[in-house]
């Protein structure tokens, strides 16, 4: 589809940078560096979303993925620890095996997927095209994504708002409003849970 174009090299460059960042997340142990790299990962994927014509998603990913997520993670990191302990190699072999099996199963399915940029793929030919055609006449809005999100599927969007509200409520119930989050230490029966028995703190 379309052959080898300059955009293809842009896509490949962005994907190569994403792979490098992901590998760095695996290798690093400083939590600050890991959290910042997660922000970089979100920003790079937002850049690729622009190349993939998903401008609204790129907006949201840059604001929410690279902005709010990073701030939340930095806050949680400040309330807990700065460094991840190293994991012994023999404990990494099991996960590596599972990940390889899952990855191979997915690679097996790649041959059946539609080609990149295929206009006639099942995903692109029926419902999506219908929404574009209907938006012109039914909801006279230029942006089809906005039309689907706010009009055709507005109850879903309302449910999304409820989810965010519930998350805020949950965090409030978990951490409280007294400003002691992360500083307070639980001591059931007057003893730290982390201490060994008999070592009264």
């Amino acid at each position: 589809m379309g052959g080898i174009t300059p955009t293809l090299f842009l896509d490949m460059g962005l994907l190569a940078m994403l792979v490098v960042v992901a590998m760095a997340v695996v290798r690093l142990r400083s939590l600050f560096a890991i959290v910042m790299l997660q922000g970089v990962y979100s920003l790079l994927s937002a850049a690729w979303f622009v190349s993939l014509d998903a401008v609204d998603v790129a907006f949201t990913e840059a604001a929410v993925g690279a902005g709010i997520s990073t701030v939340l993670m930095l806050g949680a990191m400040l309330l807990t620890e700065r460094e991840a302990k190293p994991v012994p190699l023999q404990k990494q072999l099991g996960p590596l095996f599972v990940v390889c099996i899952v990855g191979l199963a997915m690679f097996y399915a790649v041959g059946d997927m539609p080609a990149f940029g295929d206009a006639l793929s099942p995903a692109n030919s029926y419902v999506g095209a219908d929404y574009i055609a209907a938006t012109k006449n039914e909801i006279i809005l230029p942006n089809v994504v906005t039309a689907v999100l706010a009009s055709y599927r507005s109850f879903d969007t309302f449910g999304e708002v409820v989810v965010v509200y519930m998350a805020g409520l949950g965090i409030l119930l978990l951490l409280g409003l007294n400003g002691n989050a992360g500083k307070w230490r639980a001591k059931p029966n007057g003893q730290n849970v982390g201490d060994k028995k008999g070592e009264q703190s």
Binding site: L52, D53, A54, D56, V57, T60, E61, V64, G65, I68, S69, L72, A119, A123, N124, V127, G128, A129, Y131, I132, V144, V145, V148, L149, R153, D156, T157, E160, V163, V164, M166, A167
Partner: peptide, 20 residues
């Protein structure tokens, strides 16, 4: 020719739920 808007809508919702 326009790109398919439906995955965009899906993923917009998923990003917000993901951060929650």
């Amino acid at each position: 020719l326009y790109s398919n808007p439906l995955p965009h809508v899906l993923i917009l919702t998923a990003i917000v739920v993901g951060v929650a």
